[in-house]
Design a protein around this nucleic acid. Structure first.
Lengths: 138, 138
DNA sequence: TCCTTTGCTTTCATTATGCAAGTAAATTGA
DNA sequence: TCAATTTACTTGCATAATGAAAGCAAAGGA
């Protein structure tokens, strides 16, 4: 997708990393929906196909956004986990969600969730990080 | 790029609108660099090609992010301006810039700009909006 | 020892991207 | 007044990305 660096612009850097239609949806599943396995990602409503999912997981891992390890409980599986670099994308995701909540008349996000994200971003971030064993500071 | 709706997820909505490698760079040129004409967008460091630029301008206008009108001073030109919907993407852009500033060792953004964006988001938004004739409140 | 589960890879058709060249309307200069 | 230039595209074509479907391989279960 984005093999080389296009410029030194920070926005271009972010877009080269996650500027496609699928990468952030995979991160959403991991960060917000607690998914960890390949099969779970496939089940998401958008219907990603198997080759694209495999490619994105590989890219995200190569870019240091995801770690991949065998599941000790079932060695056919792998567990995908977010790195700190991925957790630091939460503000980007939240702002995109708030923007869509404002402009999509058929949005699936409920008003109470919007309110929570708008009025307690920091608390939300702490809550998500806690689920991945990260305390308040880093 | 993203013809139809993939799901009711707000993140998917945003990605269908701006989830590609060019759309946000065009908006960056307009919102942050004061560019207004086709030729100016072509001059950006990333080197977008003419057909892609034309396509993205059309898409952004169709989605209500840009307005397009003839330049009265030079009727060969058109003036592209951001709508409120585009200005509301500033938080997304700022979060992406801050993320890249943290993780790109060769980032082009200077520490003082990073500090400004981090510590005075609201002031920054007001400043940008003022340039487009929008006061504090919408 | 099969059968199933899980995570892919491969194949191939369709679509998007990107470079280069061409087109057309508005403007300028001779 | 008309030829050159500016500005904003469009078109053609090659290459790359996407997507649907089928196939494959290792691990686990019956």
């Amino acid at each position: 997708m984005a093999p080389q660096r296009r410029s030194d612009c920070p926005l271009a850097f972010a877009l080269d990393a996650i500027g496609d239609r699928w990468s952030l949806l995979v991160l959403r599943d991991i960060l917000l929906h607690g998914k960890r396995h390949y099969e779970e990602f496939l089940e998401s409503g958008e219907g990603i196909s198997t080759n694209i999912l495999a490619d994105r997981l590989k890219r995200l891992a190569r870019q240091g956004l995801l770690s991949k390890e065998r599941d000790a409980d079932n060695r056919r599986r792998y567990i995908y986990r977010p790195t700190e670099k991925a957790l630091d994308l939460l503000p980007v995701i939240v702002e995109m969600v708030l923007w869509s909540a404002r402009y999509d008349p058929d949005t699936g996000v409920t008003p109470d969730v919007v309110e929570r994200l708008r009025d307690d971003r920091a608390g939300f971030f702490v809550e998500v990080r806690r689920r991945f064993g990260r305390g308040e500071g880093a």
